[in-house]
Amino acid sequence: MEEMRANEPITNNECSSAVFLLYCSIVLLLYCSSLPALQAANDRVCIIITGLGGVPEYEENFLRWSSEMETVFRNELNSAVYNLDGREQKKPDILQVFDQVSLSLPLDELWLFLIGHANHDGRHYKFNIAGPDLTDEEIKTFLEALGRTRTYIIAATSASGILASRLGQKNRVVVTATRNQFERQPPLFMSFFVEAVTSAEADTDKNGKISLLEAFLFSNQKVDAWFKERGRIQTEHSLLDDNGQARLGESQGTLGSDPGAHGTFLASRAFLSAPPEQAYRSLEAKQLASERVEIERNIEDLKFRKTQIPEDKYYRTLEELLVKLAQINEKIEQLEAGR
């Protein structure tokens, strides 16, 4: 009984209770860095597995990145978080967490972060932890047990590119730091991914939230720039497999020329930060805000149909909608300013 509870994510509801303190101590004993989420959302779980660093420099980076992602999911997104330290927690411990999560269905979203070193032995992707490595087959088995849960996998490891094809499928986004199993250098990808989550620059659609797609595009471009700036041969090329249908990587496909395509990605609707809180004082402002949502939906719909509409007509309609939207916002601003 005690062991079962130890593998459960800790929620903020329990934070104030004395039982929670005891619970916390047990968890800390078992999972060194598995810290409690303040307000775990029942519908979203995040599992972060940090692998072996090998050298202190890597170890420090891996742990820092894991800790930062944990903070994001725990504090910003109110998610249940399992932060598993692969130096201490071996394969059975991790598989036990997998089992436990799959038993807690239904879930809306599952996020799985693999941060560390990995290799490919010609047959299997192997994530390096203490004792036997965690394999792609074990991850796959776990993911298959999740049924309809939308799943987001961020494999920030060497040789991770193979996972895009091994794990990519409908209702799933797989982000890998490398484009294949042959890119074996420790990747920089995760450092930029962490930066993206808090960067206004990464919020390219200016909606105040960072989507997984935005974080990926930001990191992908930053990695590219890092190597170019130093005149080095690029040893990593990240990939994003979306819904088992679209693959983004070195070439961003239609994304550059067709902004409407963004919205078609599952990764564009998965967020790594919470939307800004907006409370309106006047009733009229509240009404306008709901009208605004309608226009925003119309804009997204128009963008989605961009390729089917003559260009002139598309931009004319877009401008009309955008002007309306801007006018509504202007009005809301005036109302809220007390005019």
Binding site: T204, D205, K206, N207, G208, P259, G260, H262, E296, I299, E300, K303, L318, L322, L325, N329
Partner: peptide, 8 residues
Amino acid sequence: LEIAPTYE
């Protein structure tokens, strides 16, 4: 605004 319709 096509990319970021809510860009104030």
